[in-house]
Amino acid sequence: MNLKMPYIRIVVIGALICLLPLVLSTFYMHIAVLVLIWAFLACAWNIIGGYAGQHSLGNGLYMGIGAYTVAYLVNRFNLTPWVGLVVAIILSAAAAAFIGWIVFRYALKGAYFALVTIALTEAAVYVVSNIPALGGAGGMQMEYRGNSLAYMQFAGQNGYFYMGVVLVVFILLLTQWYKRKRFFYQLIAVRENEDAAEALGVDTVKAKIKANVMSGVLCAVGGVFYAQYFLYVGPRSVFGEVVSVQILIYAIVGGLGTTWGPVVGAVLLVPLSEITRGQLGNSFPGSQLLLYGLVMVLTMMFMPFGIMGLADRLRQRWQHRSATPLVDSQGGEAS
């Protein structure tokens, strides 16, 4: 099998997606940008949550660090977001390394990590709300400066759309590349059986911290993109439990620990939720979140490996029938 194929596939699909602005109206382009933002964030979360199997419920923290850093530097020092991006990457890496170190240095795992991360991302909401320089509870708005690549701002949706496509293609290529590397094999070993991985000489703590940093940095990049698109950051809109959960829903529904899963999840769920809110929101307040809840419960009960996992299963069954015996591997996309 051609090892280059997955990369070509990502690039070709990305190129095809670039044709969408030809057919979609402004509002659907807006939804398309939202899809790309959440797909990127979900892919970033997938590294720690999917591949390393560490249940972070607080990736909103890194997204918030990214969004706030860039908003603060633009508003306060009039610096271009490209500088903000670099600072955001450094800050989020430090935060992710510190949190990873706190949690992973002891053999405390599983739900503990989930609870700690959720508490920290909520703590960030209260801290930021109490810092007047960061706009307090009201958040920060950035001025619209017109079409300017230097300020990462575009007049319509299309500029953001292409930027989003580039980001998502980048993270997919990155994931695909790492999947052939020692690092991801270590992560998967940690996820499947940590003791065994340790026994085989994997420095599990280091691998997990590294995964947390990678995931955190990418989430911060997603946060920068988010801030630039909305030109507004608020404590609850980029930090906190709700955002953090939203990030991972897409990865879970699409398929944990698969390259394409988070993207598929976002492509299906983001438009769906935008539409339910438009159509049902007034007669049934909360219907959008209720729908998310139902999707989560049903996915976990009947499709625990998500859409890509299910596709994988079906494919394997089909291949099995067409002669080649195959060992059932769990949920992983065996491309």
Binding site: H55, G286, L290, G293, L294, V295, V297, M300
Partner: peptide
């Protein structure tokens, strides 16, 4: 564990809404 966390999170969203 992750699936159980997700499931109970889903239940919480359903109850709340």
């Amino acid at each position: 564990v992750m699936n159980q966390i997700m499931l109970t999170l889903g239940v919480s969203l359903i109850l709340q809404n």
